[in-house]
Design a protein around this nucleic acid. Structure first.
Lengths: 240, 240
DNA sequence: CAGTGGTCTAGACCACGAG
DNA sequence: TCGTGGTCTAGACCACTGG
């Protein structure tokens, strides 16, 4: 390969293949040489070439099929990935002093929308918890959470008032599956009051739901403060 | 491993390790046996165990360091990934008839915000193009795009009016790097008119910028129609 | 049917970095 | 320094699926 800079061989093969695609030496829809041929060209084992090509297939650049070979994707469907950790870290990485306040918490029957999110019957008793997270004393994000106690038997409802549930769950209730969606909503009166913005302000909303082997754990609606941007991390990939 | 159902051995090892974490047999911060030991336990080659553990490290569940071994992440920073293809496909997958209309296109000097996105000098001459994408005749998304012709010499500016630039770029200008961010904005008058929504309506905004070896290709602000949700695809991963 | 990718293996060497 | 993960290799067998 022409590119020796990248430490790992598989990585440098991937870089070279990517370059051939970008420079249009290999064009959309074309078939590229098979793994055995590339292994010879790049003086590598087939497993190494396989690793490189799988990376590119994961990025959406290649279309690979047994017997049919490897082709440059016609309409590349690329992927963007977001890192999502605990709120405190996001705030502190922004150079702000973190604070958080539990606004409300009580046992409530699940309304239809929440029940649907979690896949539980309407009216199921869940813990509902609302909290505001602050950066340097100003509201950073608003969290409206429903928790299924059956999936987290270790959680003591009595401690919810003083607990940072976000952190408690991250550390004590690992999940097997998660779903996440972004949308936008106009701030309602409650959002506006808690985030200290005007009524009707456009808010970026993130809805997250997680499951473990005991069932749904929690669903949470996070409203970010106006102007907040959620960005891809590191080597993102996405379509024009 | 106890789980034979999953076809691939590495995958079933990953599943088993994930289960031990979720069942809290292995707890946050604890060190797990090294690759060689797990290889014996699972009756697999070390390379196979390595593959499995790397998958879990990519998901954010494990923290791996040479010499220090592999530990369960204390604050798992999990990842959510979004597939992003061409607009037409999104519309058609929603079961709607696709349509698109170019609203404006002209050569303009880059304003400060756009120049900053692209890393080009303010005032650089770029193609600006605005278009509406429709599903069943109603606005689906609004695209406000700036294109750096230097990076896509093949693009004929004269054809912009009839071209679907989104698709042209995806097919003809593969990129090496991309950045993407979500935010929310209140619809301004122009947004409102083109999307046929009321002024002030909260809109989900996606800003994308791409680069190839010739420099920045394009930056585009996509405004989705109200109520649209952008969701994770497939096996998502994310934090509570 | 046979060519291609998918995966595993056993062994090897190396690079990092904790102790 | 030396244990641990990171990576590569040569070879093998298998599973799809296109022709």
């Amino acid at each position: 390969m022409t590119d020796k800079r990248a430490g790992a061989k598989a990585h440098s093969i991937a870089t070279e293949v990517r370059r051939r695609i970008v420079e249009r030496r290999w064009r959309q829809g074309e078939r590229i040489p098979d793994e055995a041929e590339l292994a010879i060209e790049f003086d590598a084992a087939r497993a190494t070439v396989n690793k490189a090509l799988q990376m590119l297939a994961d990025e959406g650049l290649l279309d690979r099929r047994r017997r049919a070979g490897t082709r440059i994707a016609i309409d590349p469907v690329r992927k963007a990935s977001f890192s999502i950790g605990i709120v405190r870290e996001q705030v502190e990485q922004a150079g702000l002093v973190y604070g958080h306040r539990v606004v409300a918490h009580r046992l409530s029957p699940a309304p239809a929308g929440i029940a649907a999110c979690l896949g539980l019957p309407v009216g199921e008793k869940l813990v509902r918890m609302r909290a505001v997270h602050y950066g340097d004393g100003t509201p950073f994000q608003l969290e409206d959470r429903w928790i299924n106690l059956r999936a987290v038997p270790d959680l003591d409802p009595a401690s919810l008032r003083r607990l940072n549930v976000n952190e408690w769950l991250v550390r004590n209730a690992p999940y097997l599956h998660a779903e996440l969606a972004f949308s936008a909503e106009n701030a309602n009166r409650r959002d506006a009051r808690l985030l200290q913005v005007r009524h009707g302000q456009a808010l970026l909303i993130q809805q997250r739901t997680t499951w473990n082997d005991l069932g749904p754990i929690t669903t949470v609606r996070v409203a970010f403060r106006p102007g907040h941007r959620v960005s891809t991390d590191g080597r993102a990939a996405e379509a024009d």
